[in-house]
Design a protein around this nucleic acid. Structure first.
Lengths: 366, 366
DNA sequence: CCGTATTTGTTCGTATGTATT
DNA sequence: CAATACATACGAACAAATACG
């Protein structure tokens, strides 16, 4: 066992490993090409390849076809379990299954398996999921944060992942305190702007906005809403914005809307946080004797099945759900390969796209 | 990227791995020598060595200098990984997310994690999923069979699970050749009977049935359709049944329906395999100038979101999706606890329930 | 114990393919 | 397009460990 220092490949392997450990070869450095090593050490290229292949297996080196062989950014945590944790808020929520499908498509192709967890949008559950996942061997994680707009209570767990060099990617949203971490997000500010702008361009002047308070997306869409109002020189009236939380989704927006509709406040268009809310709002309006879009225009967000199959086909913002999953998976693969941000080739922002259907109608401004 | 199955060493490596996983090579067995493998597979000895070296690295094989190469003894079959594999056909299909949620609810409560796989309803992918999952440490498996009505091509893999004492539960369907294995199924025969019976009781006499050919559910629902016809003393006309496969779902039912509607055959009611098909059918009928339910009644199956949110609210059979997941998870827990069938307390059959909505109308029989 | 065949381990040379720059 | 670098494959030779008559 111990007496194999004799073989050439072993000597070369050991020399390279020592160079890395003792810092003569630094993370990210390109090492000599196979031919050059072969010449320098007086061995055949096959022997060089053998030495290198061991170090690649052990995670010291990374070979890139056509480019060269590089010292790994971080020493990979052994052979690789080929498990990826995917933590979402709701498994069966109306977009996540497709996001998972996108993730799966990319990762399965690369031999990874998905360990699925869901938090029901509670940070406490998120903590439990992460603790559980860290007892397994995972190579990486894709996570949709729970209540991303609230202070992140699980900071220490994310830092533990950093320490263990387990890469993770945020999708859909991101915590303020972890803003520098890699993520795949929609440009929700722009999306909020686009729907609002569409209504304003079509003559609406009495808009209502309904947004979710406790996540990143809600804040961003709201910001876009405000920007569009400003562009049209309209005064921003906080009373014309309804904020709700995850927990009161089913009650608050409808109740607030009813109160507003019974007040003297005029409303000709409603910008909704999501298609789901838009559907609730349309039902409430119908109950109050208002027709959509004849009396009031309503916009959704996400282009879910509700947008196509509901009582009114919704004008909404497209959410390329599967694509988002694929992008997140590709970004994670990059991270797991130790490719630094500056060499990244994966796009991280999804540009929103307005889809015009039947839930809005042109108004003539007074 | 994903097209590396082509290289010779990879093919050989995969073949050996499969032999091990499927039990053709047993722990402790000596495998063929390098020279013999080289001859048998028509590749060079170097290539054989490369394939073997990967499997040695992964722990499947052990090479002994001068003696030979052997299949590794069970490294740690040891239960207690707290991982459960869940293999479904489509992750984002219209009922499975909720089934997974039900599974997750029960298993997370007991400290298990779910490894998610999907087959896209291909037995080939099913084989790959199972092979992959067996390289992990799993305590059990819940699987929705792919094309369950077709001959099960992966029998040996299921037998490998039996040998390794890894319990597994079938849901939604079951292969003929594995009929004795534990499963959680709907009584689809009864469900097919109930919708058909409902139409017949409401005066319909010219029914059409549209069923899926390649899965268990399709056959069962069809059988119920036939039983109801018989009860009413009606002649079973095979021309009044449209069979389709997974692959031609989007074309065949609509095309066949169009042909039938343009023929002299009378149709006053259509029993559909699923809500999804019912929606396609309703759209086709609308295109042909027929109204549902005024001109023709249509029934769905599964009580999915389509049934509530589509253009016509569907009369359908309830599918308690989350409950099915919970039942399967409970049954799996029983199996993992080693509780024999005769002491089982988990129900394994879901009784169908008819949900009456707006897609059918009473006819007066002539 | 010896000798030989078998089997894995190491090394080199060569050729061709493919991705990147 | 050409040069560079890694990837795959084959053939050959010899070394070292083991099995067996």
């Amino acid at each position: 066992m111990g007496d194999q220092g004799r073989s050439k490949y072993y000597i070369l392997m050991d020399a390279l490993k020592t160079d890395i450990i003792e810092g003569r070869i630094l993370p990210g450095d390109k090492i000599l090409s196979e031919n050059m090593l072969s010449e320098k050490y007086g061995v055949s290229r096959q022997t060089v390849r053998r030495a290198i292949s061991i170090l690649v297996n052990e995670g010291y080196l990374v070979s890139e076809h056509g480019r060269g062989t590089y010292c790994a950014e971080r020493k990979q945590k052994q052979s690789g379990s080929k498990n990826i944790a995917v933590i979402s808020t709701y498994i069966s929520d109306y977009i996540f299954p497709e996001v998972i499908q996108g993730i799966d498509k990319v990762l399965t192709g690369r031999g990874y398996s998905i360990i699925l967890k869901n938090t029901e949008n509670s940070q406490q559950n998120e903590a439990a999921c992460m603790a559980d996942v860290m007892t397994k061997n995972i190579d990486g994680m894709i996570i949709e944060p729970s209540k991303s707009e609230i202070f992140c209570g699980n900071l220490s767990q994310y830092q533990a992942l950093d320490r263990m060099n387990v890469p993770y990617i945020f999708i859909e949203g991101i915590y303020h305190s972890l803003k520098d971490r890699p993520s795949v997000l929609m440009d929700d500010e722009e999306g909020g702007y686009m729907v609002t702008n569409y209504l304003l361009e079509n003559g609406h002047r009495n808009l209502l906005g309904i947004f979710k308070m406790d996540d990143y997306q809600g804040r961003q869409r709201h910001n876009g809403f405000v920007r569009a109002l400003r562009k049209f020189g309209l005064y921003y009236n906080p009373d014309r914005v309804v904020w709700y939380h995850t927990e009161d989704r089913k009650i608050k927006p409808a109740a607030m809307l009813e109160a507003i509709m019974k007040s003297p406040m005029e409303v000709d268009g409603i910008v909704c946080y999501s298609d789901q809310i838009a559907l609730d709002i349309i039902r409430t309006l119908e109950r109050l004797g208002k027709r959509v879009p004849e009396d009031i225009s309503v916009t959704g967000y996400d282009n879910s099945f509700i947008a196509v199959n509901g009582p009114v086909k919704l004008t909404t913002i497209d959410h390329p759900k599967s694509l988002m999953g694929e992008m997140a998976a590709c970004l994670l693969l990059e991270k797991m390969d130790g490719i630094p941000d500056e060499n990244s080739k994966v796009r991280r922002v999804i540009e929103p796209r307005l889809i015009i259907r039947d839930s809005c109608r042109r108004r003539s401004p007074e």
